[in-house]
């Protein structure tokens, strides 16, 4: 097997793996455990949801305050809340709560997917795989995944953040 593991299983001209372990070396089948696949994806979702939550707090703390000052100066009066216009406050809080709710929903979705991925017949389970068993790459894991509505929603939230940030940067630069 090449250094990068690009050659297919069984192509090693030297015969058995020198470490006496799985031909994929460090990337043993247990590292590709189906449960871990689901867990890694769930953790990636959690990080994204937390980033959205933190981003909404940044909007509340930094951008909204500065925009409120600019708006109040332009309008020549107070907007009711000290340095924080209501739409921004409501929007920032809503996105923050949405991020936390999304994190909880994703954790629940992952918990529901985990046993389905590990159902007998999906593929090898955790732990070392005997030599006579097929490699993970040779096992098809057939499971219908959900649609991409959540992905589209997250994409939209990131675009809204970007638009708000662009308005803020332009207002500080040219305001």
């Amino acid at each position: 097997m090449s250094e990068h593991g690009a050659e297919p299983h069984g192509a090693d001209p030297r015969g058995a793996d020198p470490r006496g372990a799985h031909p994929l070396g460090a990337a043993s089948p247990s590292a590709f455990d189906l449960g871990l696949q689901s867990e890694r994806t769930a953790l990636a979702w959690q990080r994204a949801a937390l980033s959205v939550t933190v981003g909404s707090l940044v909007i509340l703390r930094v951008a909204a305050t500065s925009l409120a000052t600019s708006l109040e100066a332009a309008l020549g009066g107070s907007l009711g809340l000290p340095g924080l216009p209501l739409p921004f406050a409501v929007g920032g809080l809503a996105v923050g709560v949405l991020g936390l709710v999304a994190a909880a929903l994703i954790a629940l979705r992952s918990r529901g997917r985990h046993p389905r991925l590990l159902r007998p017949g999906r593929g090898p389970g955790p732990g070392p795989v005997p030599a006579h068993e097929p490699q993970m790459s040779q096992v098809q894991v057939q499971l219908q995944m959900p649609g991409a509505a959540l992905l589209a929603l997250l994409c939209s939230v990131a675009l809204v953040f970007g638009a708000a940030a662009l308005v803020f940067v332009l207002s500080t630069g040219f305001g």
């Binding site: 994806t41 990636a44 979702w45 990080r47 994204a48 980033s51 959205v52 981003g55 997250l154 994409c155 990131a158 953040f161 970007g162 940030a165």
Partner: peptide
């Protein structure tokens, strides 16, 4: 998701 996090970091 990695692209989304990259986006949020850039913003």
């Amino acid at each position: 998701l990695a692209w989304i996090r990259t986006s949020l970091a850039l913003i």
